[in-house]
Write a protein that binds this DNA or RNA. Sequence first.
DNA 1: CCTGATGTTTAGGCAAGCTTAAATCTTGGC
DNA 2: GCCAAGATTTAAGCTTGCCTAAACATCAGG
Lengths: 231, 231
Amino acid sequence: MAVRKKDLTRSIEDYLKAIYELEQDGMPAQTNAIATALDVAPPSVSGMVRRLSEAGLLQHAPYRGVQLTRDGRNAALNMIRRHRIVETYLTSKLGYDWDSVHEEAERLEHAVSDELIERMAMALGNPRFDPHGAPIPTRDGAVETLQYVQLSDVAVGDVAELRLVSDKDPERLRFVASLGLKPGVMFEVLARQPFRGPTTIRIVGPSSKEQVIGHELAGSLRCSVVERVVG
Amino acid sequence: MAVRKKDLTRSIEDYLKAIYELEQDGMPAQTNAIATALDVAPPSVSGMVRRLSEAGLLQHAPYRGVQLTRDGRNAALNMIRRHRIVETYLTSKLGYDWDSVHEEAERLEHAVSDELIERMAMALGNPRFDPHGAPIPTRDGAVETLQYVQLSDVAVGDVAELRLVSDKDPERLRFVASLGLKPGVMFEVLARQPFRGPTTIRIVGPSSKEQVIGHELAGSLRCSVVERVVG
DNA sequence: CCTGATGTTTAGGCAAGCTTAAATCTTGGC
DNA sequence: GCCAAGATTTAAGCTTGCCTAAACATCAGG
């Protein structure tokens, strides 16, 4: 390995993770976007980008943006693996709620050793997804990239399964949980108002609740359609 | 609380813990001792001591040494609680050996939240001792201070229980474990050679092994005498 | 094709925490 | 009671990572 984990500071780890996530979202990882993601001033990003580029973790096209190298991407994936395994462990072994694990994992991901991560993963039976439904990269940096559809795009009449909720906003997570929704829950889309209006769903199962979900929230819930009503 | 946890950097936490431990050993916590404990140069200590003193965490008598204030001691005890709970958790829930937990805990103690520590403590049934036999301070900063006797001072013929082994040196821990010794193990002192010579013991129990322990090692093993042979 | 808005980088500076070298204090031995 | 050895502090400087202010690049609209 050209870049040893040891050499990465907390800050560098945060930058790499943030850049990776921007790249995932299709954005070209520009200075301002990175600055916003990390809550630092743009010049701080310029400075760090220069150092990361010198360290061979990314390539920088001035005024254009930044792209992770193989080393940089591997390091980022390692951080994401750590984060998601920690989240999963805290949730299933120590009774954390899915809305409070993110913050704790954000600190722990920098402190745990690879050994501890593997022990946690082992204790959990090598889970493939974290509590929010995000895929956990493997030790050698492979991630499942599944294409989900936004709940706001699931057709009326379809039955779908909730798969992924962003872990970034605890408020949203609490609210989603209060609707009885979490990854793995199946639901049927009963109705949707036009003009980006709310969607009405019925959760499949004994509780069988009906819930109304606003357009914006529905857009942040990723699902897979289980049963398509051909109509 | 006059000093909020949030304000303490990793470095400060390390200094406070090291100073607390020096004070515990009866030493007056002088610059050089602190520098040695933390593996930094003496001037680094002078600098940090000034800052800690300004922050009200300790008192500094120039050229004489340093003493923790109540705030400083509480912060140190909090770190020690974290360290020992993490060690206990890793050992009993994640299969770590007692010789490898120290290093991991040394990093984690700075990253875990109070909440996580309490959850770990809960999951463990609020243990009073860590895997090496060291007492775990309570949340409000109380520590049991038990007076143990060195194994090298236990009289021939006495039966004693091993209570405490320093966690600082993994080599020693591995060796002690290889002798069949760990906190809670009972043994009888069979013989001791003069001139700071080795002690021979027999472990009480089904295995009933006889072991010879050098003087220096025996001095680092803390015991409580269970049954005194009046002779 | 120029210009202004926006985004990015450079310049200059600060705090934490470390270093080495030099100055200073303390103390034990004579 | 002095003096050298050892411990401690001061001085000066480095790196990381942040900041603000100012300079500079890009690009879309006129």
